[in-house]
């Protein structure tokens, strides 16, 4: 099946199996070094990418859904301004995710912080619940919450300055 989409800023025309998961497309067809996990249904949460600006688990997206979509993996996301905010939050809180989940967690934090901008009264339990999709216990819940809130705060301030 021919799929046309934008991945990491490149317009691509790919010949893929229609039901091939995006995670395997990235790993095997595009040699993307930032998506390395494929847990076969255990929902490890380590394969997150941004599809049309929203975090998705790439193992759950079949190739046939990719037509006309824009995918950004950590490969491009790490160069964006938003990632600077996230790195700053890691630095200020004094803890960052381990190398196994760094990429995926950063992308999920990005998506989550964008939602929190729209819904600032989201309870902490829900934030923690959203982050629990990642099956890696390298950070405690308090630190995770602080990071997400700090990233949201940085984005809010930037938005205020812009307006």
């Amino acid at each position: 099946m021919k799929i046309e989409c934008v991945i990491d800023g490149k317009m691509l025309s790919l010949n893929l199996n229609s039901n091939k998961p995006l995670s395997l497309v990235l790993q095997e067809d595009l040699d993307n070094s930032t998506v390395n996990a494929h847990c076969r249904g255990r929902l490890c949460g380590l394969c997150a990418v941004l599809m049309d600006n929203e975090a998705v688990l790439s193992c759950m997206v079949p190739a046939f859904e990719l037509n006309e979509k824009e995918i950004r993996t950590f490969e491009t996301f790490q160069k964006e301004r938003s990632m600077r905010d996230i790195e700053r939050a890691y630095d200020e809180v004094g803890v960052k995710p381990c190398e196994t989940c760094y990429q995926s967690r950063s992308i999920i934090i990005e998506s989550l912080s964008n939602k929190l901008l729209e819904r600032p009264n989201t309870p902490s339990e829900q934030i923690i619940s959203e982050l629990s999709v990642i099956d890696c216990s390298c950070m405690d819940t308090e630190d995770m919450l602080k990071i997400v809130k700090r990233v949201t705060d940085l984005k809010r301030r930037r938005n205020v300055r812009r307006s």
Binding site: S18, N19, G41, C59, P62, F64
Partner: peptide, 29 residues
């Protein structure tokens, strides 16, 4: 029959399809 696909995509033998009889997918989206 494929609705959201979350359960299908998280199945163990989803890709490649091993021991399955499906030859086509009807996507409801």
């Amino acid at each position: 029959i494929w609705s959201g696909g979350s359960s299908i995509m998280t199945g163990k033998n989803t890709y490649p399809l091993i021991n399955s009889n499906f030859d086509s997918i009807i996507y409801l989206g």
